[in-house]
Design a protein around this nucleic acid. Structure first.
Lengths: 211, 211, 211, 211
DNA sequence: AATGAATGAGTCTTCATTCAT
DNA sequence: CATGAATGAAGACTCATTCAT
């Protein structure tokens, strides 16, 4: 007779395991960075033993790549789709992209991956290469096409797109970073920050007549 | 028999030692980050042995604090002085501050400290506390007073100062970060970036009539 | 409902399983040695799962013993029979034994087991004991009886049999070893080596008159 | 006042350390093989901590190479010198080389390195390459030149030198192996074995008239 | 003041074996 | 019978810090 009270040494969770491990890994990568994240801790947080991690991911690097693929790539695809198919004013598209990014990534723990990459890309060149190829270059292209659309339609000033893309992305990057770094003085809420950002980006800081 | 009057030929270097160690430490902290910097390497780059490091600095953390004090604090003081005593248009003060920061810090390896702090402040809370108290809060106050001056004099729109400070600092932070992170696609030079930044910050992105 | 009369289509393989596992195990033991052979790999090469291995063999040690029983013991019996029943000149028996050993074992991957035992017997005392009892002592006795036959019949010089057995087996062992070790400089083919061996063993190296 | 009874955490032994470590490493490599030797154990046997090992040797492979350089290379040089300068009968040179090898290497724990290489060269290709280049090829050349000398002077039969070198080295290799492998049935002492070997090698096994 | 030898806890990774299904 | 998920002990290597000289 089976005794339903006896706890098995482990529970078979084949299908759920990778997701659980990826979630635990995301938490710790974001919290501690790449190098400082111990795989032991990832396993423990997912409720499995160290060895189990290696059943699903070849090593630390592959685990990290899987975290990026799971969490960043899909959102990127959506943004690309939105920019490609939008049918409204470019300033509205801009706001929608910013706000969509904020809800989908910026405000979640996923944004910590940006911090991690900036922090440690020098120490892990292969991870950096992967990230540039799969994330950064696609995100840049997406923002650039947004700006080009605005200029083409006469809604934006004809600024240099490459440069403006960089400047434009910077505050968004920083907002992600500031949420995960304890070296900021948090005097401003993200919502306030975003409003200021959109306002400043669209109108500049100069008072009307002086411009 | 020891003759205390005879100066050994390395006497002169005694006072230079801490400087040499700080220079070596700055290089490596910037290049690799806090955790990944080995004190062995710092000592080797300064041409001394590992043990010597501990004669001048209690431990890794104190070494890092000394690097910050040596490299960041003086420049902050200068900027504070400039904002307090400026006698021209605010948009020129803004440009002078940005360009002065760029020459004095942003374009030098010191800017790597920003990356380091953002990256690792979570893992080293005491270092983070020190950095917030000694650097971030003073820099924020300085920029805020710059904006207040522009608004007070009617040169800037009456934006929310706290928020605008954050948004304004973001691209400057990012420019520092991007110089030390291999995860950016470097399509834009710092000079171009800064011009775009000043232009966008002053005028916004919208085309004239639409505003 | 189970129907005990219907033969499932994999039934036939049931009996073949141990053989497939033993073949895979032989390959890997020979290629990598005892400790370095992973049971995972054995199972994979046999096309079954790791767990299945444990249905047929209690553990790694028993698997290895089974490999030895399967591959070495039968050939030993044949050689013993040949020495016992031979009806020709002892130098021909010697050549037949050497060549038979070469074809049956020496030139096949089975010879890798000798390397393995020499290499790792110290680390696995129980395996070593088994091998001495089941293989080495029987092979020694077989060669000794060959020499004794030659001496008894006046065909061989009356050398010390125990000693000559050891010296005689050495080049055969070495030929087996050299086929599985990458630390030899393979200047000589096995065929050449065997001819030289038989020639030197029968006649010695000294030129005629000097002897 | 210094208390001479207080035991220091460690003793400064800079000059002696490498030798002590090499001796410990030789012991364990010979006893257990390359892969099965734990660097922890090497350090412990030398009376130091794990980390100390890494002050003197970059990693396991370099430690092993150092063991080979320390223990095998010098003896090889001596043998080469003896063959080059010998002034007597070749059969005496042969005996001297064999006996010198026996005293200098064969009978010592150094001979265990041969076992190790044969056993594990497949699993550690770079170690194998080093060993072939630095040891095997030189030893082979030395033995070959010995045989050539005998043949040139009419003392040895004009056998094929390459082949005979291989066959000749085999029993010496085996004698080394058998001392370190527990899979042999030790019925013969090394002295007896060597005498038989020299006798058989010089005269062959066949009875006089029959040859 | 300066050295650098020594330490040992910490981290990634491997693999024989177990066992619920 | 067969599977393969899970375990956990073990081993190579690193590095901040200490301390005898």
């Amino acid at each position: 007779m089976k005794c339903p009270l006896k706890k098995p040494r482990w529970e078979r969770r084949k299908d759920a395991r990778p997701q659980e491990l990826l979630a635990a890994a995301l938490d710790l990568f974001v919290e501690r960075g790449y190098a400082a994240t111990r795989l032991d801790d990832v396993a423990a947080r997912a409720g499995v033993s160290k060895g189990t991690l290696y059943l699903y991911f070849e090593n630390k690097e592959e685990l990290f790549k899987a975290v990026v693929r799971e969490n960043l790539i899909p959102a990127l695809g959506e943004a690309e789709g939105m920019v490609g198919n939008y049918e409204g004013a470019s300033k509205d598209l801009f706001r929608d992209i910013v706000m969509g990014w904020w809800e989908r990534l910026g405000s979640t723990r996923v944004s910590g991956i940006s911090k991690l990459m900036i922090a440690e890309s020098n120490n892990f060149p292969e991870v950096a290469q992967f990230y540039r190829d799969e994330v950064i270059s696609r995100a840049d292209a997406m923002v650039a096409s947004l700006l080009e659309r605005g200029i083409r339609r006469g809604e934006f000033r004809p600024v240099d797109v490459r440069q403006a893309t960089s400047v434009l992305c910077a505050p968004m990057m920083m907002l992600m970073l500031s949420q995960h770094a304890n070296c900021q003085v948090h005097a401003v809420t993200p919502a306030e920050y975003l409003e200021s950002f959109i306002d400043l980006f669209l109108h500049g800081v100069l008072a009307g007549p002086d411009k």
